[in-house]
Design a protein around this nucleic acid. Sequence first.
DNA 1: ACTCGTTAAATCGTATACGATTCGTAATTT
DNA 2: AAATTACGAATCGTATACGATTTAACGAGT
Lengths: 212, 212
Amino acid sequence: MGHVSVLRDKIKEHLLLQIREGQLGIGKTINLAALSRATGISVTPIREALSQLEHARIIKAVPNRGFVVSPLSKSEVKDIISTIAQLEIMALDASHLNTDEISALKNILVRMETFHHISEGLPFHLEFHSKLVQACQNKVLLQVLDDLRLRLSFYEHQLLNKPQFLESMLRQNRSIVDAIEEDNIPTAALLLKMNWMAILELMIAQMDVKKG
Amino acid sequence: MGHVSVLRDKIKEHLLLQIREGQLGIGKTINLAALSRATGISVTPIREALSQLEHARIIKAVPNRGFVVSPLSKSEVKDIISTIAQLEIMALDASHLNTDEISALKNILVRMETFHHISEGLPFHLEFHSKLVQACQNKVLLQVLDDLRLRLSFYEHQLLNKPQFLESMLRQNRSIVDAIEEDNIPTAALLLKMNWMAILELMIAQMDVKKG
DNA sequence: ACTCGTTAAATCGTATACGATTCGTAATTT
DNA sequence: AAATTACGAATCGTATACGATTTAACGAGT
């Protein structure tokens, strides 16, 4: 099995990049012809890639209208975050972060303090959570986590516009790392859960603003 | 948003049914032309459906060869089962099964004792685990569980050929229900984890036989 | 009997064509 | 002014065509 890449995968990467960069947002309908022109690839593999994202519940296929980024309901956001929190705690519990790994986490925090542009913030946030659980040997668990986090991407982009979001995340992330450094995993787990609960509150609040 | 069903979804249902019925097994390559003839649907929506199952890691797309049911590695099986066990425990913990729900579980056990054909066994097994966590309000968690269980379908079919598998499952399932009935959730959780660890051992053993 | 090379057939992945549906706009009616 | 209708353009979902790749079959050589 070689390294040949089918066009479907290229399109998927393109779309995931757009999601990560905030170019694809809630309410947006993906125009097949426009994407085909932009990428130089015909609609067939584009539809295949979009079908995959539909299956992953990242977008929604509306018959005869196309593929849209439809809003999550509040209960979905709550469910996703609850599940992520639990799985991250499980992954952290199964990990034993060494000195280098803890240093890497601290390094992210340092970089998180010094970025200049608000759009640089999300990669740090994602990187922190990813690194936190990276030592977990259960690859399936990490995949499930990545998939769930991806579903929240659109909403996390919105939070970046709030000046206090990243400050707050930085504070909370610091205390998580401190607890880990003291080998106090139960406290780290509790703080991690509280971190996600704080994110949940902010997201729900943002959804209320958008509706009002 | 109406009830129009695109052909991709019909094909996906067709394939999932084939998986559930054991007609699609490990090592099998899905022939697009044959499936197109069998269903009377062109390859375009078939590829879209297959792409979705690829993304869900149920099948694997091999460039220029097609979509195949490729074997899980031992570590993948272990990771999937560990994750399922943890998530089921989490779901069970968040549930408070009432008398009716416990009766429904017992009813499955009774039916599990009386089936006549070995291929009838898997639906009971699936139904038991599904019902066990059904009262959990976190729908995302239940979806993740369904997705992970589906990845194990091919291997569970193989276990059905072992006469002692369903007896053993029946015994273990009974003790789980007993613990729940006594409102002893920690014991039920432990028994549930042990149930999945037993399944893991059987699956790994089966994989060794297949290889030997 | 086994291996290798060649060739034809089968199959895959993608582009394109086309009928069906939706969207956007203008005109008409209330 | 607001609501409804009509119509053309845009878009969607699917079928089909086609070049590229893989597979299977066959013959020649060892």
